[in-house]
């Protein structure tokens, strides 16, 4: 199978994630969309690694996973404190500071 299809899939997933960040209201779902974007990057890294026949891409995918996990922890902590003090995780409710 042509590996380039995986790149198309990665680009598609990345776009879906980016669109989700822009249109969804719930902070948790926005955050899940960011994670989808990171996973799309991982797919691209692994595919390029296969195309080039070197292992750099696979190693980078490991690092991305760990960074994404750390990001999940920090993000969940922040979003949960936000939710607990307002009983809403909608990004539209984050409106204390406006021009």
């Amino acid at each position: 199978m042509n590996p380039v299809y995986y790149l198309y899939l990665a680009a598609l997933l990345f776009t879906i994630g980016a669109a989700g960040v822009l249109v969804r209201k719930n902070a948790i779902i926005v955050f899940m969309c960011v994670e989808l974007m990171l996973n799309a990057c991982n797919l691209a890294f692994v595919t390029f690694s296969r195309l080039h026949g070197n292992l750099d891409g696979q190693i980078i995918a490991f690092f991305t996973m760990v960074v994404a996990a750390a990001e999940v922890v920090v993000g969940l902590a922040i979003i949960v404190t936000f939710f607990r003090s307002r009983h809403s995780a909608s990004v539209d409710d984050a409106d204390l500071m406006k021009l």
Binding site: A27, M37, A44, F48
Partner: peptide, 27 residues
């Protein structure tokens, strides 16, 4: 807390872009 949520979501969004850019440069 609101500032942190905004900074976090936008920061994570932008670093995802950075990472995809890295993937393409690696490609």
């Amino acid at each position: 807390q609101e500032a942190a949520v905004k900074y976090f979501l936008l920061g994570a969004f932008s670093s995802a872009f950075l990472l995809f850019g890295i993937a393409l440069l690696y490609g």
